[in-house]
């Protein structure tokens, strides 16, 4: 029977775990490279520098929010704090929504790693879709909120 045949062919779990650990080890230079870039970014680009880029024009700020969020790195929690401050400064919710969304979905820093793992075409398609959808979702959320409230 097929299931029995499969189970007899199955290697021991320790072997599978070792294989999985080794494939992760092989990816270490890639991970360390990305983590190194995150550290550099966090020191060279401060949240204040990012916040100062917004102009006050909702349309332009939404595009800027998407771009700034896309190049930023760090815990998404920071994007919420920064987003909250931006709203208080009068920056439109369209821009702030785009900013906090692209912070987690777009990633300039991990782009080399994404290309290495998934290939250039996949990375291009995914980031392109993500970029467009960040702005659409930000617009839909803010518009719906304005209609509801």
């Amino acid at each position: 029977m097929q299931p029995n045949k499969q189970s007899t062919q199955r290697p021991p779990f320790s072997k599978v775990l070792q294989k999985s650990s080794l494939s992760f080890l092989a990816m270490m230079p890639l991970l360390l490279g990305v983590i190194g870039l995150v550290g550099l970014f966090q020191v060279l680009v401060t949240p204040e520098m990012l916040a100062s880029l917004f102009q006050g024009n909702p349309l332009l700020d939404t595009l800027l929010g998407t771009l700034i969020g896309g190049i930023s790195a760090g815990n998404p929690f920071i994007s919420y704090i920064l987003g909250g401050e931006l709203v208080e400064q009068g920056i439109s919710l369209y821009a702030v929504s785009a900013f906090i969304l692209s912070w987690v979905t777009l990633g300039l820093i991990q782009l080399p790693a994404e290309v290495e793992i998934f290939g250039g075409r996949f990375t291009l398609y995914r980031n392109m879709l993500s970029f467009v959808f960040v702005m659409l979702i930000a617009a839909a959320t803010t518009f719906s909120l304005q209609v509801i409230l």
Partner: peptide, 20 residues
């Protein structure tokens, strides 16, 4: 065989740190 991935990225980042 175990082949390391992202060696170029790692070396580039290492160079950036040395310069920094």
């Amino acid at each position: 065989p175990l082949t390391f991935r992202g060696k170029h990225l790692f070396l580039t980042v290492l160079c950036l740190y040395i310069l920094f």
